[in-house]
Structure formats: structure tokens, C-alpha cells
Design a protein around this nucleic acid. Structure first.
Length: 160
DNA sequence: ATCCAGATGGTC
DNA sequence: ACCATCTGGATA
């Protein structure tokens, strides 16, 4: 959920990826506590937002305790309206999330997450997207999707 | 259906 | 030089 003025933009999270620790060669924490990755090393429950390819943003939630860098990238939403949010860049564009949100507490306004009360998801794990440079770490099944959702960033196929 | 160049700028 | 992306146009 993101409150902007009187409006609340929201959607159901249907796709995520885990980035876990300095040893994860796909994680931004792999270079240690650089200026960009600073938030990753901080308190859990805070937003880690970064600019990618000079024109898009990616939204993560920091996990695990201070000093232990880990986060969940939110990659797709099923929107409450007609908007499309089937990808990490589109999601941030549609919800209006930018680096101005980096470090915000995600348990309160204006940017927060609520438990969904609808039907249970059918969770399927696949390799993460766009991290081929990460060697063996690229193959870990740390992307999680609701296979029953039509709003995924890419289609699922046999086994995945 | 698949392939790919181009956009665009922070980060290391 | 690289990059946790997206779009539109070309090709088949």
C-alpha cells in the first residue's frame, strides 16, 4: 500500500525474490556495506529502494537483524484497479515508489504492507531473474510466485 | 512467437 | 563497464 495525498495505491503481492547475505553473489551486499547497500545492513522492516538501468526503481523489504544484510524484492502485484504491475520496475512506477522512500519503515504510512485476507496463494519457487552473472547463486530457487496469478513478470512453465 | 537495440544514470 | 528493466520494432 502507498498513500499519496488522499489516494491509496495498492495491490496484492504475487511475486518476490530473496537476496540473502554478503555471500550471495547476486545480492547488493556482496561488496560489503557500500553507500547504496547501507540500508540492507540496517533494521528489518525497512524499505530498500534503488535505481536500476538509470530509469527504473526496485522495491525491497529488509529482513533479518541489523548487521545481517538480506532483503525481499517485490516483483509483481495484482492491482486493485486496472493498472499493470507485473515487474519490479513497473510496480514502482505504478505505485509511485522512488529512492525518496529508501529507508522508510514499512510497517506504517505512507508505505506499508498488510496481510491479505483473500484466498491462499499457490506458491511455486523458481530461479531469480536477471542475475546470470552470479554463478551458482543464480540457480538458487529464491524467486517465489503465486502460480495462480495472471500478473507475473513472466510465465511459469513445466516444473517452474 | 522470439530477438534485440536503445533509453539513461548511479554505482563500483 | 556494468546493471535485480522495459518498450517498441523487426523478424519468422
Amino acid at each position: 500500500m502507498h498513500r499519496v495525498g488522499q489516494r491509496v495505491l495498492s495491490g496484492r503481492i504475487v511475486e518476490t525474490e530473496a537476496y540473502i547475505g554478503e555471500e550471495d553473489r547476486a545480492c547488493h551486499a556482496r561488496f560489503g556495506q557500500t553507500p547504496r547497500a547501507k540500508i540492507l545492513f540496517g533494521e528489518p522492516g525497512h524499505a530498500y529502494v534503488f535505481l536500476i538501468y538509470g530509469m527504473y526503481h526496485c522495491f525491497n523489504v529488509v529482513c533479518e537483524s541489523r548487521g545481517r544484510p538480506a532483503a525481499v524484492l517485490v516483483r509483481a502485484l495484482e492491482m486493485d484497479n486496472e493498472s499493470k504491475a507485473d515487474g519490479p520496475g513497473k510496480l514502482c512506477r505504478v505505485l509511485g515508489i522512488t529512492r525518496a522512500h529508501n529507508g522508510l519503515d514499512v510497517t506504517s504510512q505512507p508505505l506499508w504492507i498488510e496481510r491479505h485476507s483473500g484466498r491462499a496463494p499457490t506458491i511455486v519457487a523458481t530461479p531469480r531473474v536477471g542475475v546470470d552473472y552470479a554463478g551458482e547463486w543464480a540457480q538458487k530457487p529464491w524467486r517465489f510466485v503465486d502460480a495462480s496469478s495472471p500478473s507475473l513478470s513472466r510465465k511459469i512453465f513445466m516444473g517452474f
